[in-house]
Structures are given as structure tokens and as C-alpha cells.
Amino acid sequence: MRFKTLLLSFVVAISCKSLNVDYFPITIEGNKLLVNNELYVIKGICYHPVPKNSSKRDFSNLTEDLSLMTELGINTIRVYEPIDDKAVLDEIAFSGIKLIIGFGYNQNGIYDIASGTYLDYIEKYKKHSAILMWELGNEYNYHPEWFKDDIANWYRAMNTAALEIKGVDGNHPVTTAHGELPDDLALRMSPNIDVWGMNVYRWDNPKAIFIEWNSISKKPMYLSEAGGDSYMTITKSGYKQGENQKAQADANKKILDVVFENLDVTLGVSLFSFTDGWWKAGENDKQNLGGRAPNSTGVPYDGTPNEEYWGVVDIDRNRKETFEIIKTKYNSISDTN
């Protein structure tokens, strides 16, 4: 297995040397996203791979992960912080997958919004074919305490950053991952956001979010997070307490059915998440219950976010029951719908 992985890495590395990194035009037409002038449906996954005994992201398992993602039919990866490694970006591009690159507000001056260094990253990688969109923040509307207890300070900074990005890169849309439906203040203060991502946990049926969005905006939107975890804190809705992969599989199936029935409104979805994260709720050398997630009472089917059980594969890349559900659904939907 080790030899096979090394061989795959070598083949990808050689191929990426000749990879044409000229980028296709990525544009907005009405409430649609176009890549190379064709409609693009986001069949995505949130990806923050952290190995056992660690709290830091690590791409050493990238080749295997991309193989699994390709099998799943994933065409978009959403990451919460920039990837400053051309070899990683090249391998992702070579796999046929595109990236939504997230920028935090304050990341100690490392490609963050507060320092302005996010623009350095965009200048560096704006012509790379792996890039789909630039994303500003993740559920910051739940954290006014980070902005002097006034969330308007964040919207002002976000809107300015989006405008500055357009001055550096006119080829990639700017998005944000908003917690739930943005209110009037968010929309009024953020005209430079091209695509609204929304992290939505409404049990197993997000249908109402599409109706609500369509009534307040004609801009593109997508679900930047959605899905369920594979642990039931209590017995409820016919699902037994304890690790319960069927609950996760059933929830994800219903969520994906609703998303893809509403492609007249939404660009698609980025399911949360690819792999279990043992770093999130306790000791990094074992899987723990619990974890903190704001506004998460809508997590199916127990209303409790067990943060270390959200992967569609476990930390050893064993497939959970939901894997085949996602594979069937994503592969039945054309990238260009």
C-alpha cells in the first residue's frame, strides 16, 4: 500500500509539471455560476484534514483523499484557510476538483484580512486553475464579540475586502460563509459579495432557505455547510443513542435530495465534512463526544453537534454508510446542469 501511494504521488507530480495552469473564466450570470461559460453545480465537501495526535491541518494523505473524493463525484473542495503549497494545489487541479479558498479575519498576519496579506495570496495564486472562489469569513455573524460587539464592523471589513479582491483579481467571484440566512443589515452592507454561502442546519430539510433567499435576493447562493454527524446523543426519531451511521446517511440523503431539487435557486452544496476530526472536542489521540458549534440545534436527529463524528469517512478513511449515498447522488448530477 505504501508503495502504491508513493507511485501515485510520483505520477501526479510528473503530470502536474505539465499541467496547464491557465485558468478558465469564472463568471456570474444572474443567479448562476459559470466556469468556462458553462453552468457549474457545486458538489462539494468541506475539507480540513487533521491526523491523529495533532491539531494542525496536514495534506500528507491528499492522494488517497482525492481518490475517494473523485469516486464520490465531488467537484469542489471548501477549505477554511489558504493552501500555500503549489504542489497541493496542482494535485487538486489535476484531479479535476476546484477550491473555495477561505480567509479568516485575524490569523496572526498570515494571509488574513486584518493585515491585508490575503491580497498577497490572491496575487500569488489567482491564475491557478484549482481556484473557484475566494471566501471571506466563516459564520462570523455569530461572533460580534470579535468585532467590538458590533457585527456591522465585520460586514464593513468584509465588503471592503471583497472590493479590494476585485481590484487584484477580476476572474474569481467573492463569497462568504454566513451562518444561516443573512439579514437586511448583512445584505445592505455587503454589496460586493458575489455569492452568498450559508451554513444551514435545519434538521434534514433545508427547503425553506431557498424560498426565503429567493424572496430577498437574486444573487447566487449555495449551502457552504450542511449535513449530519454519525453520533446520536439520545435516542430520537427512530435512531438509537450512540454511534449511528444510518442517522447520518438518512439525513444526508434527504438534504441532498432537497438541494438538487432547487437548482433554480442554489448553486449546490458543500457537505460538512470529509473526515472525522479528532482534534475538535478533546484529546487528539482519541475520538470524543461533544464540541461547540453555534446555532446548531437543527443538527439531525438529536439537535447536538458531535463535532468529531462529522466525516463521511472516519479518520482512517474507512467509508461510513453515508459515503454510498453521497456517491450515488453526486454522480447522478451533471457538473454543468
Rank of each mutant, 00 (worst) to 15 (best):
R2G: 07
F3H: 10
T5L: 14
L8N: 12
F10E: 15
C16T: 00
K17H: 00
P25G: 05
T27C: 03
I28D: 06
E29L: 12
N31G: 14
N37F: 07
V41I: 15
K43T: 09
Y47A: 01
P49D: 10
P51I: 13
K56V: 14
R57W: 14
R57D: 03
S60P: 03
L62R: 01
T63F: 01
E64A: 08
D65T: 00
D65N: 02
L66W: 02
S67R: 09
S67I: 03
M69D: 06
T70S: 02
T70K: 01
L72T: 14
G73T: 04
I74E: 02
I77L: 00
V79S: 02
E81S: 14
E81I: 08
I83V: 10
D84Q: 13
K86S: 14
V88M: 05
V88L: 04
V88E: 06
V88I: 14
G96K: 02
I97D: 00
K98T: 00
L99F: 02
I100Q: 04
I100K: 04
G102N: 02
F103L: 12
F103Y: 07
Q107H: 11
N108R: 03
G109Y: 09
I110E: 03
I113T: 04
I113G: 13
A114D: 15
G116V: 09
T117Q: 12
D120F: 12
I122N: 08
K124V: 07
K126G: 05
K127R: 04
S129E: 00
M133V: 08
E135M: 05
Y140D: 06
H143N: 10
D150L: 10
W154S: 10
W154V: 14
A162N: 09
G170D: 08
N171C: 06
N171S: 02
H172K: 02
T176C: 03
G179V: 11
L181C: 06
D184C: 14
A186E: 07
L187P: 03
I193F: 09
D194K: 04
D194F: 04
D194N: 12
W196Q: 15
W203H: 10
W203T: 06
N205L: 05
A208E: 15
F210T: 15
I211G: 05
I211F: 09
N214S: 12
K218G: 15
L223C: 03
A226D: 07
G227I: 09
Y231C: 04
I234G: 08
S237D: 12
E243I: 15
Q245D: 11
Q248D: 12
A249K: 14
A251Q: 09
A251L: 05
K253D: 10
K254C: 07
L256R: 01
L256G: 01
F260V: 11
N262M: 04
L263E: 06
D264M: 05
D264R: 07
G268L: 15
G268N: 14
L271S: 10
F274I: 13
D276H: 08
D276T: 08
E283I: 13
K286F: 06
G290N: 10
T297R: 01
G298M: 07
V299W: 00
T304W: 00
P305D: 05
G311K: 05
K320W: 15
E321Y: 11
T322N: 13
E324Y: 08
T328M: 14
S332Q: 10
I333F: 11
S334P: 10
N337W: 07
